[in-house]
Nucleic acid binder design. Sequence first.
RNA 1: GCUCGGGUGGCGGAAUGGUAGACGCGAGGGACUUAAAAUCCCUUGCCCGCAAGGGCGUGCGGGUUCGAGUCCCGCCCUGAGCACCA
Length: 835
Amino acid sequence: MTSPGPKPPFQAGEAAGYDPAVVEPKWQTRWRERGTHQTDIEHGRNPFYVLMMFPYPSAEGLHVGNLFAFTGNDIYGRFQRLQGHTVLEPLGYDAFGIHSENYALKLNVHPMSLIPQNIANFRRQLDRAGLMVDWRYSVDTTDPSYYRWTQWVFLQLYKAGLAYKKKAAVNWCPNDKTVLANEQVIAGRCERCGAAVEQRLLAQWFFRISDFAQRLLDNLDRIDWSESTKTAQRNWIGRSEGAEISFRVLDPFEQAGSSTVTVTQEIKAEPDVIKVFTTRPDTVFGATYLVLAPEHPLLERITSDAQWDDVMAYRARAGQQDIVTRKVAKEKTGVFTGSYAMNPATRKPIPIWVADYVLMDYGTGAIMAVPGHDERDFEFARAMDLPIVRVIAREDEAASTPLREPLVDTHKCRLVHSGQFDGKHVADGHRAIVAWLEAKGSAQATVNFRLHDWCISRQRYWGPPIPIIYCDTCGTVPVPERDLPVILPNISNFRPDDSGISPLARHKEWYEVACPQCGAMGRRETDVSDTFLDSAWYFLRYPSVGHDDVPFDPAVTKRWLPVDSYIGGNEHAVLHLLYSRFTTMVLHDMGYLDFEEPYKKFRAHGLIIRDGAKMSKSRGNVVVPDEFIARWGADAFRTYLMFLGPFEEGGDFRDSGISGVRRFLDRLWSSVCAATVEGEPDPIVLRKLHQTIKKVSDDIAVLGYNTAIAAMMEYINVLRKNERTPHRSEVDPLVQLVAPFAPHMAEEAWEKLGHSVSVMDSGWPEYDPEMAREELVQLAVQVNGKLRGTIRVAPNVTQDDALRAALADAGIAKHVTGEMRKVVFVPGRLLSLVQ
RNA sequence: GCUCGGGUGGCGGAAUGGUAGACGCGAGGGACUUAAAAUCCCUUGCCCGCAAGGGCGUGCGGGUUCGAGUCCCGCCCUGAGCACCA
């Protein structure tokens, strides 16, 4: 027989009176009517800007991942508001781009009609989620009133000399006759028709983000961002230190002899020089050949007659490969050019090859190959039967030990076969060799970045037209700012086809326009800009919505920016976050902004999986927010999303889990209904309350939502354990604590408790350390490192008293057999006896 | 290959170097009910034991420490990102 247990003081059945399907719409309506979520941009005290990455409004509707992020942000925003800030929590739509365009193509609808539908659907879903968004400050990147200023941003970069046009490769499907994004190329083939994709050279607009590489890197040390995001940016910027070394190309006469070249043999007036970048100048004595990228401009000059046909054929083949497969590791191929260059260290001639494992767009497009100490060069030398020389040895190796594999370590290694530098440790050798080569004029210490300039041209339709006009007499002319926006025309056939490159290029009536400078007939740029340009500055626009004559109002911007807290997915760790930092820096340098970093604090949220697996349509395990909200209510859905794992790590959505959160909220409601002002609050409950206030406040501040919710659950368990009616002073603060998570119920409860203002304007409960202090604490007692019992003592007990109490405990004392050698005492925690 | 996360009960997950498993789900038992649902109460890491109690436990192997999920060294597995970056 089990004891029946104490009769509960109140039944949660009373919670039957709480129906989210009624209460949630009620409060959503009230909030709208009363303007509860309206931010006083002009006068609100203590401004605080919480930003979340805006969604792409897909036709499928809001993804639970979006809602997870938005809810996490909303809780933080509400918390800041309850703590006395005027909070701006805006949301908008990132609606341009290839996703929308492809989807529209597939459905055969126009994006201009598709997007408004999607946005309306998103808006409906977002409102149901109970976000504290002030929709008066929203943006839609496809609205001309927004992209007018995107085009303005382009013009500022142009004005600053940071936008330029050059030829660059794009993926080209010869069958569909269209430009493909990298994601549309699958194993070198067009994802739609399966044709082999080629690369094509097109003139495209670039931004000089690489000029800012060092600054983008340095500033990372000064901003409060998720460490993982900073690391991703550092890797992407990819700074490497090394040297540029010059290799003089030998003329055919010099090449005849294979012996050391002497200065007197140099007969060419201006010999060709191949510059290479290397991070390992210490290995220069081991450079046994050079390799040029197939696109290297010197290739034609240096290729010998005998090798000409082979080299040109190789280059042509490389040019046909698409960009994606070109960059995938594969078997080494290459062709000898027939020419030699002089290794400036050994003064010996070495052959010059061309191979596609060397990339034109990094370093100088040429390398010195050191097969003994580089894996790729080793592999290539093996395949082409080129000499492999050891110039580095471990401490336990002789200089003559043959290399079975490339030795790439530097630690505890010394130089060998390196002339006067033999025996030096690698790091010392590095410095000495660079200095030596610099003195001879054949090297220079340099820094290289992996970061490439940002290509913003898209040969597509669904984006803001790039505001440039080409004129036969005036050349490239920026559209005057007063003529913005350059409206994207509503054309019925926006499918890319064989008529040209960009769909807009088929519309003469659109692109033919008078030159703003001379008035002669000119031609608009027919490419549109990258979606990432839309999102590079959107955070500047939100608070200035309504200021129609400027992209962002100076006074408003001064008040609200930079962004106080930014939350988003780590999939944007590099591109979006880097581009918006860059754009902000440029606008800062031009005097438009007084800060150069847009986001003071950034936290990446985790990913939600379901039942242990990634959500996907094919797996059929996608969480549809509407269904869960309809069944459990938005409050329960929000709270469950935040409870299922740490916000910054994500978690596993299990359908059964939400019931626990629903129960918690129902119990809370029961307590609210039962609360009375009669009598006095219970000191034990009160102590737990103050501990809970502290825990919840601390946890929300670091986005520890799952543990904050757990703490509130613990509190309500304590509150209900007590066989009595809860006191008002035990319940009111809990309603405030739960308000960021379950705002509808909190409002309803707050009203029921007799308050007339919104709970969101009621402030945040204060925590009193005195009230939270325990009278007795449990002290763990260890004997020889093993837990042998616990004792209940005052928190400030002395070591001696604790020891006496421990030895008075029979269960503990029986383990204390020998003489005590040491006692470790951690007040309030444990007593460790060593014998 | 490189970089960054992560491996803890049946499950999701808690743990400033100090009582591992908070909180929740699930499961088992009970109360209420004609019954079910809902609600409420109790139990719930594993092993031995009737019990008292004892032993073992945070991916694996070492180490530091009175004390290690946590720190150090060496592995394994797994997720994500980058990837011929010289």
